[in-house]
Simulated scan of single mutants.
Amino acid sequence: MKTQSIFLIILIGLMISCQQNTTKDSPEELKQVLNDYFDGIKNMDFNKMKDVTTDDFTLYEVGKVWNNDSLINFIKTFPPYKIDYKFDNFNIQIDNSIGYMYYFNHADMVINDTINMVFDWIECATFVKKDNEWKMNFLHSSVRK
């Protein structure tokens, strides 16, 4: 009887400790999704943009509402460009399968190797975890003054 009691205590202890070892998602995972999305814009890699977003992805930008298709069609009208994005001042929250962030986005853009443009935005994004993978489902961008 004493052996069975010890075995039962050990078994219960193992079950409890296994349940407590759940890993928490890292804010870096959401940053990576965001970086991948903007890398897609930078490199005109439209498949990459779609891979890291949900099918119902929506972008609010300066009073306009976009989805991936409308944004991609707009980007295709651009003359040749180079753009570099820099993100900072992140605030990231994750709760199970939902995450959100807000941050500053700075972009240096060169069009046709001659026209230099600088952009600064205040942005926020929301993310959902589907099939154990984070996807961005909403992005809001406002001009930073």
Rank of each mutant, 00 (worst) to 15 (best):
M1A: 11
M1W: 03
Q4T: 03
I6T: 11
F7Q: 11
L11H: 09
L11G: 11
I12D: 04
I12C: 13
M15N: 13
M15E: 05
I16G: 07
I16C: 10
I16L: 15
C18N: 15
T22Y: 14
K24F: 11
K24W: 07
D25L: 08
S26P: 09
P27A: 11
E28G: 11
E29N: 15
L30S: 13
K31F: 06
Q32M: 14
L34A: 15
N35W: 13
D36S: 15
D39H: 14
I41P: 01
I41L: 15
K42S: 15
M44G: 08
N47C: 06
K48F: 01
K50R: 15
K50G: 00
K50T: 06
V52P: 00
T53N: 03
F57V: 01
T58Q: 12
L59M: 14
Y60D: 04
E61H: 13
V62F: 04
K64R: 13
W66E: 03
N67V: 00
N73K: 14
I75K: 05
F78D: 08
P79M: 03
P80I: 03
P80S: 09
P80N: 11
Y81L: 02
Y81R: 07
I83D: 04
D84I: 08
K86E: 01
F87G: 03
D88T: 08
N89G: 05
F90D: 06
F90A: 02
N91E: 10
Q93E: 10
D95S: 09
N96L: 06
G99N: 04
G99E: 01
Y102M: 06
Y102C: 07
Y103A: 02
N105Y: 01
V110K: 13
V110A: 06
N112M: 09
D113G: 07
D113A: 12
D113K: 15
T114P: 01
F119C: 04
D120A: 13
W121P: 00
E123A: 14
E123I: 03
C124F: 05
C124T: 09
T126D: 06
V128Y: 05
V128P: 02
K129Y: 00
K129R: 10
K130T: 06
E133Q: 14
E133V: 10
E133A: 09
K135I: 00
F138S: 08
L139S: 02
L139C: 06
H140W: 06
V143I: 15
